[in-house]
Write a protein that binds this DNA or RNA. Structure first.
Length: 276
DNA sequence: CTAGCTTCCTGATAGC
DNA sequence: TGCTATCAGGAAGCTA
């Protein structure tokens, strides 16, 4: 559920709390969330690392250490990464706790356990975590109509599905893809090979607008984030089409429709987003 | 190679 | 009330 704007929000909230902190102890409650290396090595390597900084790439969070090793996290559907006081209530689905210098802890909570951690030493490749496969960042200046057309212009897949392809543009999920298509006035079931360069230009601009908007409207403080335990950082109240089936389009008043595209529910305005 | 389907999981909710 | 079915949707892995 967290998509790029939410991950960016989490990064901005957590980085100041983690910077220069040392990991004193690592407790793994559920080995399933450790993707690489084996849990025992993971725990040993992570213990005593000093955090240099944090960054985001697509929907991944990357914690960099002073020795240039790094910890990579993907929250997938329901992962919550928190920095808590040591005495903070331990949630049922807490799979990892790392004690920090300063009476604080990093906690990983994940109801559905789809999220994953990778610990990579400085000589180990990003490819282990799949980071090498990611396409460009949506806010990169390299994102334009030409780029999208080159990557997907000959494909018959639905434009909605293409937006979810992390190899093309990294960080878009099911919520923001609906919002992007509404902004671009494109039907989610439009085939990529039916679009012209001007449509691709339009879509590229919509991606940048919506992702920027998502980051801007997602602002919250560290204490708000902790209070909601990282569950409520979604933009739901501000969304224009996602989850609004049966309600009126804010633009034209038509009733918002919902279709299932490759197993993903997609809301759109049939009038504003008619097929070409 | 591409594109679509299945799988991993639990909790919330709908329907009977 | 309590049971079962359905849905949520990121991305790897599989299939045609």
């Amino acid at each position: 559920m967290p998509e790029l704007p939410e991950i960016e929000t989490i990064k901005r909230i957590l980085e100041p709390q983690l910077k220069n902190r040392r990991i004193e102890k690592v407790q793994i409650n559920n080995e399933q969330v450790i993707a690489y290396p084996d849990p025992n090595t993971f725990r040993k390597e992570l213990t005593h690392q000093v955090i240099k900084g944090m960054r985001r790439r697509g929907k991944y969070l990357i914690i960099n250490f002073v020795n240039n090793d790094r910890l990579i996290v993907h929250l997938r559907m329901t992962g919550q990464l928190l920095v808590t006081p040591t005495d903070f209530k331990v949630e049922k689905h807490t799979h990892l706790i790392a004690d920090l210098s300063s009476e604080k802890q990093i906690r990983y909570i994940d109801v559905r356990r789809f999220g994953r951690f990778w610990y990579l030493r400085k000589d180990e490749a990003d490819a282990i975590a799949g980071l090498d496969k990611l396409g460009i960042e949506p806010l990169s200046k390299n994102l334009n109509g030409q780029y999208l057309m080159k990557k997907a212009g000959k494909s018959r897949r639905y434009v909605k599905t293409m937006l979810h392809d992390q190899k093309i543009v990294a960080g878009i999920g099911n919520i923001y893809s609906d919002e992007i298509l509404f902004k671009a006035r494109l039907n989610p079931q439009q085939r990529c090979n039916e679009l012209e360069l001007k449509d691709w230009d339009n879509l590229a601009q919509a991606i940048q607008f919506i992702i920027k908007w998502g980051i801007d409207t997602n602002k919250m403080t560290a204490s708000e984030y902790l209070k909601t335990e990282g569950k409520d950082y979604r933009n739901i109240p501000n969304l224009k089409v996602y989850g609004r089936e049966g309600e009126k389009c804010f633009h034209c008043g038509q009733i918002i429709k919902r279709v299932v595209i490759n197993g993903r529910s997609s809301c759109y305005c049939p009038s504003c987003q008619s097929l070409k």
